[in-house]
């Protein structure tokens, strides 16, 4: 568990790993999307995961979640090798992870409250009253109006869908949360609110957050570390200063482009 390579984890070999990916290869047909990728996510950190469109960010996330098959390589979540884990182990690990999909993936025929209660009903035996209270608590935690509890996803705005999806991801109090472009499609105020929400939740609940994003604001606001993906590999990982210093053309263009320039003062 402490074999973090110097390239991906400068000087942090001692910390607990939530996710560790080694030599991962994923491909479809003749094309390899992920080619020998190494990545570490430490417990309690917010990792921002950036990369151009079509570089395999989603594929990597989906592979870690077990939604895509890998060709080779090793994925460890909470120190357990997913290949060696039994079905029961998988179920146990999955209960410790929460996922927020980009479009929310709320079940459209259930109300928001029922959506949040789906994992509770499936995995736990709770009294209806307690389940209701917990669902409402999650709604309050993600800053949703309690009136939204009995609405259907179709009746919610984009920002509310994101919040409801986050509430569902948090339903079982996971230790590790995957967020797929949490601020995409939100207005800047909504996006900033959402960043703040994630930061607050991360601090209070001690979450580990794996966040795929394009949003420079989010990266600067809440990410402890950033990993950049290109050519099917993590080409740079570390605090933002590391990425700013990187001379890889894509990373340089990303962090020194016109849109990134306004952050230079912050540094």
């Amino acid at each position: 568990m402490h074999e973090a390579s110097a390239a991906t984890a400068p000087g942090r070999g001692g910390r607990d790993l939530a996710i560790s990916v080694r030599d991962l290869v994923v491909g479809f047909g003749d094309t390899l999307v992920v080619r020998g990728l190494d990545l570490d996510v430490y417990r309690g950190e917010v990792l921002g995961f950036v990369g151009g469109s079509g570089t395999g960010k989603s594929v990597l996330t989906r592979t870690i979640l077990g939604l895509e098959r890998k060709r080779s390589g090793r994925i460890e979540v909470f120190g357990e090798d997913l290949d060696k884990a039994s079905a029961a182990d998988h179920a146990r690990i999955e209960r410790r992870m929460g996922v927020m999909f980009q479009q929310g993936a709320l079940f459209s025929n259930l109300t928001v409250k029922q959506n949040i209660q789906v994992p509770m009903r499936e995995h736990l035996r709770l009294s209806p009253r307690f389940a209701d209270e917990l669902a409402m608590l999650k709604l309050a935690l993600v800053g949703l109006d309690l009136d939204a509890a009995d609405k259907l996803p179709a009746q919610l705005s984009g920002g509310m869908i994101k919040r409801a999806a986050l509430a569902r991801a948090l339903a079982l109090d996971p230790e590790l949360v995957f967020l797929d472009e949490p601020t995409s499609g939100l207005d800047p105020i909504g996006a900033a609110d959402f960043d703040e929400l994630i930061a607050t939740l991360q601090k209070t609940l001690g979450l580990t957050v794996f966040m795929v994003t394009h949003d420079l604001d989010s990266i600067y606001a809440i990410c402890d570390r950033v990993a950049a993906l290109a050519e099917g590999k993590v080409i740079a990982a570390g605090p933002i200063s590391t990425l700013l210093a990187s001379d890889h053309p894509w990373v340089h263009a990303y962090f020194h482009g016109t849109r990134a320039r306004r952050f230079q003062d912050v540094q």
Binding site: R95, M120, H123, L124, R125, L126, S127, F130, L134, L172, D173
Partner: peptide, 10 residues
């Protein structure tokens, strides 16, 4: 004292 304990928690 976590939700994983399910009914035992209540």
């Amino acid at each position: 004292w976590t939700i994983g304990a399910s009914a035992a928690l209540e």
